[in-house]
Amino acid sequence: MTEAAAPAVVELRRADIGYEGRPVVAGLDLRIDAGEVIGLLGPNGSGKSTLVRGLLGLAPILGGSVSLFGVDRHRFKDWARVGYVPQRQTVVGGIPSTVREVVASGQLTSVRPFRRPRAAERAAVVDAIEAVGLADKAKAAMATLSGGQQRRVLIARALASAPDLLVLDEPTAGVDSANQVALAATLAGLAERGTTILLITHELGPAEPLVTRTLVLRAGRLVHDGPASEAPDEHDDDWHHHHGDHPDPGPALGLEGPCT
């Protein structure tokens, strides 16, 4: 595959991304190709979230260029190809809603207004819920789910539009190890199907075997970009933050599909 033949899934050229005119991420060059599974690491405030928010149109691009699937982000329209799992926990609103309702809200760019969803669209919602191993909870109220299960619902919501690029911001923060293992299994299934994954995290945990490339940001600049095996040793450096003990890596991942 040559660069000319297939546009990069994500391409940043000397990109500055920030807020109110002040770049948090400065002069970043980065290319992510189809099928890569990227672990994006770095301490709090290093610009990890700002970087992905810039990709998603949630943070302004102050300089340079950012493109998705070969199209400049400002002109990019095909948002169904991008799935986003935010870090924030906002799934429980003021009104009861079921897992299925929240997941269905992830496919709106493909569903037309003033029309009932088609059978294929409803099936995509069911598939997305199955992919995160919550089929038995589809009709349950969000408020009755654990934090880890709610996080998996957010991943299903991102999957409902069958994205080619999945961006996850700290999906495992505050999630117990059983749910981390379930989540890694979901990601393994997606990676197998060729979905490009950009995973922001403090610790790769059970997802570590999937990651094909590790990026480390510090103070808005890329300080490491290489194969996962060459990631800096966690305990050598100050970018590493503990959230309790290191989770048990869990069983071998990849082929057994989602588990709960």
Binding site: L58, V91, S105
Partner: peptide, 13 residues
């Protein structure tokens, strides 16, 4: 979608 998670709705275009 907008009422449930405004930021996500924005990121969905």
């Amino acid at each position: 979608a907008v009422s449930n998670d405004e930021e996500y709705a924005l990121a969905s275009g």
